[in-house]
Design a protein around this nucleic acid. Structure first.
Length: 500
RNA sequence: GCUGUCAUCGUCUAGUCUGGUCUAGGACGUCGCCCUCUCACGGCGAAAACUCGGGUUCAAAUCCCGAUGACAGCGCCA
């Protein structure tokens, strides 16, 4: 044993704040968190904002907000002032002892390492223009070769480079990549091997104060004592690059686990820029998906425990999750299954929990005052709700008198004349019934005798249409219960006048 | 083009490591039936897959080889 072997599990999610929190990122985060919790480890959020052009503070705030909404909060990372929805972030107010957790606040660290590599001649300045490089790539590809840097500037003497720099020449910093096999053991895929000879010398920084992704990552993972890197498969080719950098820096890399991709229906990568389907977690939130549904759905995209169970709480997942059972192939994002999970979790909510979820974003503002009625309505339609956003249209009939063609009032096995007769009968019955009796069971008791005589369909269909205005709805007595006496009689009178 | 990864029902997957119990199991979706005034919920049931070709073996979804296909990466983005 060389040194104290790290036993503590420390994992991280390291987004660049260049867009909203992505549904695929949510799964990566989930797997990281699950792994951390299961090993009593630490989950870290690190903001990789070295791309100055594309990084935005508002995205950083949105990513954190969406993570928290999903219940994927971090143990260490940057802190948001949150209150008042402010999007300005306190750079220094991080939680955790390994900060700062934004890469732009860690530039000194990168610079130190960059200078070290330069002085050790493991890295060098490259003066090639982007046009030259592009031309190189083109011709190599044309010859059927890998498009890699040919190493022109590798041989530029240090003093000459210094002179050119002093003269104002622009240059980037490249690391020397040895022509060796670069193999690593992926926790999900097993042995993976790349060839350094096919990589070419990599640009690791645009300047001493402008490190690039692979370079900053290696340093930060080391500095933050990351034990496992669990990330998407698109990063698999970055691993050998990070191995080269780590080797030069004399750093031991964390263990790697590359997750399968989440795919569109056409099996292409479900990426940030796919127009059609929404990929931002906030959009799913806006459509009325529940966090527990999204989590349950996402965890089964590329992972499955032993056995047939599929419904899990987060706590159960912490107990069951394991990397070896993660799938190797990509998984198509099947929205119907998400919908099913969502409907399932909606049905499991109590009516009052649902009320809290629905108000204020998913109801008509005009309904807000009467939470007693809302509660009744929720009870009636929650079993037909796939998404909270559907509540408004499903609940509308309880709050506004619906319009409908009079033909709808007549049951398929009956006639208009019969329907009219029924309505007169029901109206008489209900008018005589005291307001307090307007409860489902009492209403049933009052009206069912008529059904005995006329037939259930002949009575219940027109009744239900009259109070709902719809060919598909909850049962008539439940609706009447929620509507109350006055409104019910009014709707019956509307029906009667339509038939006359 | 180069490099890498992957391959079980339409989709997510169990089973593959430790060949036989797999006439391949579950879930979503689809279809049918029941419940029922309608819709939804719920219950019951059905159709639906081991990419192909070789090999090893008494025996292969499971092991080996090859082919094919799919996807990802190939940036002075992350």
């Amino acid at each position: 044993m060389v040194a104290k072997k790290q036993t503590e599990v420390r994992v991280r999610y390291a987004p660049s704040p260049t867009g909203y929190f992505h549904i695929g990122a949510a799964r990566t985060t989930l797997f990281n968190l699950l792994f951390a919790r299961q090993h009593q480890g630490t989950f870290i959020l690190r903001i990789e904002d070295t791309d100055k052009e594309r990084s935005k503070k508002e995205y950083e705030a949105e990513i954190i907000a969406s993570m928290r909404w999903l219940g994927l909060d971090y143990d260490e990372g940057p802190l948001l002032p949150d209150q008042n929805g402010a999007t300005t972030l306190l750079a220094k107010a991080d939680k955790g002892d390994f900060g700062p957790y934004r890469q732009t606040d860690r530039l000194d660290l990168y610079e130190t390492h960059l200078k070290k590599l330069l002085s050790e001649k493991k890295a060098y300045y490259c003066f090639c223009s982007q046009e030259e490089l592009e031309a190189q790539r083109q011709s190599m590809t044309a010859q059927g070769m890998s498009a890699i840097y040919n190493g022109t500037c590798r041989s530029v003497p240090t003093n000459e480079a210094a002179a050119r720099l002093a003269g104002g020449a622009t240059a980037v910093i490249r690391i020397k990549v040895p022509s060796v096999k670069l193999a690593f053991k992926d926790l999900i895929r097993g042995d993976v091997e790349f060839d350094g000879a096919l990589m070419g010398d990599l640009v690791i920084a645009k300047s001493l104060r402008e490190p690039l992704y692979n370079f900053a990552v290696v340093i930060d993972d080391e500095a933050m004592k990351i034990s496992h890197v669990i990330r998407g498969e698109e990063h698999i080719a970055n691993t050998p690059k990070q191995m080269v950098i780590a080797e030069a820096l004399n750093i031991t890399l964390p263990l790697f686990a590359h997750l399968p991709l989440i795919l569109n229906t056409d099996r292409s990568k479900m990426s940030k820029r796919d127009g059609e389907r929404s990929v931002a977690v906030r959009d799913y939130r806006g459509a009325g998906y529940l966090p527990e549904a999204i989590i349950n759905f996402l965890v089964l995209l590329g992972w499955h425990p032993e056995g047939d169970e599929e419904v899990f709480t987060f706590e159960q997942l912490v107990g069951k999750f394991d990397l070896p059972r993660v799938q190797k192939a990509g998984a198509v994002f099947n929205i119907e299954k998400l919908d099913w999970f969502n409907a399932y979790y909606i049905k499991k909510k109590s009516d009052s929990e649902l009320l809290d979820l629905l108000v204020p974003d998913f109801i008509d503002p005009a309904w807000a005052g009467d939470s007693g009625k809302l509660l009744k309505v929720i009870a009636l339609i929650k079993e037909r709700l796939k998404k909270l956003s559907e509540f408004k249209s499903l609940a509308a009939l309880f709050f506004t008198v619906p319009g409908y063609p009079k033909e709808l009032l007549v049951w398929k096995k009956s006639t208009a004349a019969a329907a009219l007769e029924i309505f007169t009968g029901i109206h008489t019955i209900l008018e005589a019934l005291p307001e307090v009796e307007f409860q489902k069971s009492r209403l049933e008791a009052a009206v069912m005798p008529l059904c005995e005589v006329k037939g259930r369909g002949d009575v219940l269909w027109p009744l239900r249409v009259a109070v709902s205005g719809s060919q598909a709805s909850p049962g008539p007595f439940e609706i009447i219960d929620a509507l109350g006496k006055t409104e019910t009689l009014r709707r019956l009178e509307v029906a009667i006048s339509k038939l006359k």
